[in-house]
Design a protein around this nucleic acid. Structure first.
Length: 681
DNA sequence: GTATCGACT
């Protein structure tokens, strides 16, 4: 298909190369691309690029223990390979698992494959994600989130129910996928040692960075598949841009003035605030454009946006009107929008970094990696050829790091280390990670688990305690699991379950900066002088009182979808408590019991008011401050425990609870022995 | 007197 790129509408750009994801010099199994969406399913299946390689692929996969499969989205690899294996009788003794980093992907892929197999979802083809298990004893092709397979591995480290594990989207390098790499590799080796049914591992990835995968899985062969990516013309700026927001604004309107109105624009930016600000600016400018230009609709897109507003980005713009979507990296992988013709890439992203020394995560705006820039560009070529405008020079692009640092190397490892220990991995400190996290991060995670009483060190080996074994049952950060287990001592498990559920769900509260006054007024009636935990609990109680009424949620700036999730999490945690034979009680209005329990569970995060009015974190002696979003911001309590430290302009404590010094001493007498001012003087 | 990218059990 000859490709004639559109002329660049923005004069200050210069064209780069046309973007094809696959390296043409590598051996590729397939070539042509046919498409006919109206044909029956079985014909559609045969028209997928992968079909022509079916026999070749099966011959290889039949004999290999591990394989790396490289292929673009659209090659059909995720839906077809599991079916090919099943139809060829490979792995029939057990289940073929296909893991995904995201729930929606697992669910929709299972639906698609069930349709192709003409069976009811949940029979031959099923899926398992948190809160939803659509499988049965007949299920042979099981789509699941990688977090779910990890959970299953805790009860069955050899994964004996499975004969094949397909790890999809491996290039995303999520924490769970990275841990799973090690878990399946270990299971595969041990099953061979114990002469069990072999476990076949197939790693599927979109990138060309295959050496690492291949090397890790015992030098397994790499198979390449042609995708169906449409060509995308890349443009770079001629000069470096000092202000990417301004550059984005100019580019949007240059495209708007020159391109046909049916061509939608997707702009990648870093966060909610700048997206909302640019959206306002765009709408203002669009109002004052000459009639020749045509109207424009601008939609922000980010994760904390309420669901109703998120759905708007999928509606086609009215005829003659251009759609512009300003998005965070949510549109890189998680949300796919059709009819995008132009991508504008600021080259920036907001991402977590981890400082193993302080044990703190920092959220910082930084440059994207090359792989991420290609991923963004690819969003312009899903149905047809497209263009990507990079708001940086080709030289700047060349200087980007090739790959985003895997998340496992920039996150807090406490949960991961507890999980690995609970899996019975013998030497977790030296776990065979594909990309090793910094040793300091591993050490501080194990120390944290020791302080919580989840593990003990014996002869340089990490051993799970009885408490740790219980903690690992909860799908929570270890400190929250500990707090739940403690709550029976304070007769307030019901309340703690609610609080922990609220804390473990993101974006429970919606805070649009433009409506700040309204938000504050609405929050006022829930505020507790005892801190943020109690305030959250008040909001949750009010939410339940109105049975989750959506109107109430909107009026009170509460995210109803997140609150629904809170309820599901709470039910799941309660279920685990019952299985552990914990006694669940409510303390009613006795909030001191709740705060006592929080003090005990989170004593590592204690801050003490100093004589000069500042606060000191007692574990690190780090000066800290109360975050202005806390309900205790104006107050000066002598002692607080907090959920997390946020490092921005200062070290801010977030989610605070007022506590008594005595409670802390009771909770950890040795730890606080001479730490508290009240005991020192 | 501050800002929360994105997933998952």
């Amino acid at each position: 298909m000859p490709h004639d790129p559109d002329p660049p509408p923005a004069k200050k750009f210069k064209p780069g190369s046309v973007f094809f994801r696959l390296d043409k010099n590598k051996p590729v199994m397939l070539l042509t691309r046919k498409e006919n969406a109206t044909s029956p399913l079985d014909i559609q299946r045969k028209q997928l690029p992968i079909y022509q390689a079916k026999l070749q692929l099966l011959n290889q996969l039949r004999t290999l223990h591990s394989a790396i499969l490289i292929g673009e989205t659209g090659s059909g690899k995720t839906t077809q390979i599991p079916q090919y294996l099943y139809e060829a009788g490979i792995g029939r003794q057990g289940i073929i698992a296909i893991t995904q980093p995201r729930r929606v992907a697992a669910i929709s892929l299972a639906g698609r494959v069930a349709e192709e197999k003409r069976t009811q979802l949940g029979k031959l083809v099923g899926y398992t994600v948190r809160f939803e298990d659509v499988t049965s004893s007949e299920t042979k092709l099981k789509f699941m989130t990688d977090g779910m397979l990890l959970r299953e591995a805790m009860g069955d480290p050899l994964l004996l129910r499975y004969t094949v594990v397909v790890l999809d989207e491996a290039h995303e390098r999520t924490v769970n996928t990275d841990v799973l790499f090690g878990v399946v590799k270990t299971a595969q080796r041990r099953r061979r040692e114990f002469s069990k049914v072999p476990l076949k591992v197939i790693v599927m990835s979109a990138t060309m960075d295959v050496d690492l995968f291949s090397e890790y899985f015992n030098k397994s062969p790499v198979l390449y598949l042609e995708g169906r990516q449409h060509p995308i013309q890349i443009y770079y700026t001629k000069q470096p841009q000092s202000d990417y927001l301004h550059a984005a604004l100019v580019s949007i309107f240059q495209i708007h003035q020159e391109a046909p109105p049916s061509h939608d624009i997707l702009v990648f930016m870093t966060g909610q605030e700048e997206i909302e600000a640019l959206a306002r600016t765009c709408r203002d400018i669009a109002k004052h454009l000459p009639d020749s230009c045509g109207p424009m609709v601008v939609f922000p897109l980010y994760a904390s946006l309420p669901p109703v507003q998120q759905l708007r980005v999928f509606q086609p713009a009215p005829k003659g009107c251009r759609k512009v979507i300003l998005s965070t990296n949510i549109a890189e992988t998680s949300v796919t929008i059709s009819r995008i013709k132009y991508v504008i890439d600021t080259g920036m992203v907001k991402a977590k970094r981890f400082n193993p020394g302080s044990g703190l995560e920092v959220l910082a705006v930084q440059r994207v990696s090359k792989a991420q820039a290609w991923q963004r560009a690819g969003r312009a070529g899903r149905e047809d050829s497209g263009s990507c405008y990079r708001l940086y020079t080709e030289e700047e692009f060349d200087n980007l790091v090739p790959m985003t640092v895997p998340e496992i190397q920039r996150c807090n490892l406490a949960g991961v280390m507890l999980q690995l220990t609970a899996l019975g991995i013998p030497d977790v400190m030296n776990f065979d990670f594909m990309s090793k996290p910094p040793p300091e991060a591993v050490h501080s995670a194990v120390e944290h688990l020791e302080l919580l009483g989840a593990v003990e060190m014996k002869e340089d080996q990490v051993h799970l305690t009885a408490l740790g074994k219980k903690m690992a049952r909860f799908p929570l950060e270890p400190k929250y699991a500990k707090t739940i287990l403690l709550s029976t001592n304070y007769f307030c498990s019901e309340e703690i379950l609610s609080i922990v559920s609220l804390l473990s769900v993101d974006n429970v509260l919606y805070n649009p900066p433009a409506r700040r006054e309204e938000v504050l007024a609405a929050r006022k009636k829930f505020i507790s002088s005892e801190g943020d935990h109690m305030t959250l609990l008040n909001i949750y109680r009010a939410f339940k009182k109105v049975s989750g009424n959506k109107e109430w949620c909107r009026e009170n700036f509460v995210n109803s979808r997140s609150m629904g999730l809170v309820k599901e999490v709470q039910a799941q945690l309660k279920d685990i408590c019952l299985k552990l034979n914990l006694k669940l009680e409510s303390c009613g209005g006795d909030t001191a019991s709740i705060r006592r329990c929080l003090a005990h569970g989170m004593f590592i995060n204690t801050a003490e008011l100093q004589l000069d009015g500042t606060y000191l974190a007692l574990d690190t002696h780090q000066p800290v401050a109360i975050h202005p979003s806390s309900v205790l911001f104006q107050a000066k309590p002598a002692y607080v425990v907090f959920n997390e430290l946020l490092h921005t302009s200062r070290y801010y404590m977030r989610d605070l609870c007022l506590v008594d010094a005595d409670w802390l001493l009771d909770a950890a007498p040795e730890y606080f022995g001479c730490k508290l001012r009240t005991t020192k003087s």
